[in-house]
Design a protein around this nucleic acid. Structure first.
Length: 454
RNA sequence: GGCGCAUUCGUCUAGCGGCUAGGACACCACCCUCUCACGGUGGGAACACGGGUUCGAUUCCCGUAUGCGUCACCA
């Protein structure tokens, strides 16, 4: 039998699979299962196959399949090409194989056609359960024992033509030569059933590793009512795939060091099933945000600029190219993900980048400073900035303004200048603002503010 | 309810018989500072409980409690 794990020749080979059911979008938990399988395969130079478990024809939908494939591609979790040369393994295309095995099971007496009363169907295929004690060694949890008598003669197919989950899984795992089954802890109780089938079919038993579940803040199973669960929703919110992968890897696994920022390749290098946690882990968006921020900082400026620009694409009027380019570091400092750019814009915090602000003259003077001298400060600041000869850089601006500000009191000078440029009580510092806006626009706004005071 | 899995700061976690129980996120304070953000420094914060085993338990064993999973002609 070709799927036997030969103890000499192929003992070190690792073959894993990610088998989503296209009955829903790729969610965070499924993505992490895919990730752990991927990391394990890469770590050991093995293979990972993608298998669509679509035996339930009613619930399986093309749009879910699309969503799953999109999500995996976005996270950069590429599966290996299948032994038959295809990219995708669909259970719905393997009816003949399942039928053959089913007939064999029935012929040998390991399964039987069962007459049902008052059920959905009159006749189904049940597995004749020998009722033995099954123990398997979970890589993460150690030995787990079940008394399969409690399972009864479970149904393995709706009919000879319609296999159910456990049967299809066992047959496909054997056909693909799967060596390690890495899946969610909710599958622990499925394992004895599958081992029973493997034995009846004469298949080799893969090694099992059941990873902990991802939980909602209230420790219940993470679901739609807890907010975003689909991977594509995180993409839409403007998270970086590197960040989501990084965070997901750290949810339930750790490298044993204090390091927290890892690329996919670095994770693969470090990954070890032995360091996977046993208890469930709550999904914490704040930590994700922090990791995303760390990744944001690693981006080259042109990539960031493009992303910020596209986040602002629907905002009018458009921010001028050169202004946006200079404002980029300041914007990046204030966001955790691309979606925050929109939030910033909607809160009006970027208005001053587009056009001169409507300045409320009442807010122009710094604490108790008279209007007269405030106007003087604005005029003097404008004069000094106008005399800046070379590049209108942040350093040059600071050099031009600082001595005067220190002489008259920093707040007395810097507050009105900053307020004149931004029109806001909270904003970046005046030097940065002047640099972003450019000399001409800076002088124009200072003059405008000065006029408001006369 | 049966069966199974789990339980260290609010959260993610380090720890694999002897530690002032470490780190990160979040939070708080201070510093930086014209404001905000960034950054820096510091702080509060945990071994679920009860029995054992042991000279000594966060660590090993057994209970209890709690949480979660699963008991489909879904996967």
């Amino acid at each position: 039998m070709k799927n036997r794990r030969d103890t000499n020749k192929r003992s070190s080979e690792v073959i894993v699979r990610f088998p989503p059911s296209p009955t829903g979008n790729l969610h965070i938990g499924g993505a992490r299962t895919a990730l752990f399988n991927y990391l394990f395969a890469k770590k050991h130079g093995g293979k990972i196959y993608l298998r669509l478990e679509d035996t339930d024809r009613e619930r399986s939908k093309p749009e879910f399949e699309r969503n799953i494939l999109d999500g995996l591609a976005w996270l950069d979790l590429a599966a290996d090409t299948l032994p038959d040369g295809k990219e995708l393994w669909r259970q719905s295309e393997r009816a003949d194989v399942y039928r053959t095995h089913l007939k064999k099971l029935v012929a040998s007496g390991a399964a039987y056609l069962s007459q049902e009363k008052e059920r959905e169907r009159r006749e189904v295929v049940r597995f004749k359960n020998p009722g033995s004690l099954i123990t398997f060694h979970d890589i993460i949890r150690g030995p787990i024992t079940f008394d399969t008598k409690e399972l009864g003669d479970f149904v393995i197919a709706k009919s000879i033509e319609e296999p159910l989950y456990h049967l299809a899984v066992v047959i496909d795992d054997a056909a693909l030569g799967i060596t390690h089954v890495i899946r969610g802890e909710d599958h622990i109780s499925n394992t004895p059933r599958q081992i029973l089938l493997q034995r009846a079919l004469g298949f080799a038993e893969p090694l099992y590793a059941h990873i902990p579940l991802i939980l909602a803040p209230d420790r219940s199973k993470l679901s739609k009512r807890h907010g975003a669960v689909a991977v594509t929703e995180y993409r839409e919110q403007g998270y970086l795939p590197e960040a989501l992968v990084n965070y997901l890897a750290l949810l339930g696994w750790n490298p044993g060091t204090d390091r927290e920022i890892f690329s996919l390749d670095e994770l693969a290098e470090q990954f070890d099933l032995k360091r996977v946690q046993r208890g469930g882990a709550i999904f914490n968006a704040e930590k994700l945000n922090w990791i995303n921020k760390e990744w944001l900082r690693t981006l080259p400026p042109d990539v960031s600029e493009r992303a910020v620009r596209s986040a602002l694409a629907t905002e009018t009027p458009r921010i001028k190219e050169d202004v946006l380019a200079r404002a980029l570091p300041t914007i990046l400092e204030r966001i955790g993900k691309w979606g925050d750019v929109r939030a910033l814009a909607e809160a009006g915090e970027l208005d001053y980048l587009r056009a001169a602000p409507k300045v409320d003259p009442a807010h122009l003077p710094w604490k108790g400073e008279p209007i007269e001298s405030t106007r003087e400060h604005l005029a003097e600041a404008a004069g000094r900035l106008e005399r800046v000869a070379g590049a209108f850089s942040k350093d040059a601006i600071t050099l031009a303004l600082m001595p005067y500000a220190e002489e008259k009191g920093k707040g007395n000078v810097l507050w009105p200048v900053r307020f004149a440029l931004s029109g806001r009580e909270k904003s970046p510092d005046p030097f940065t603002l002047a640099y972003i806006l450019g000399k001409e626009e800076t002088l124009r706004r200072l003059a405008a503010a000065s006029n408001l005071l006369s």
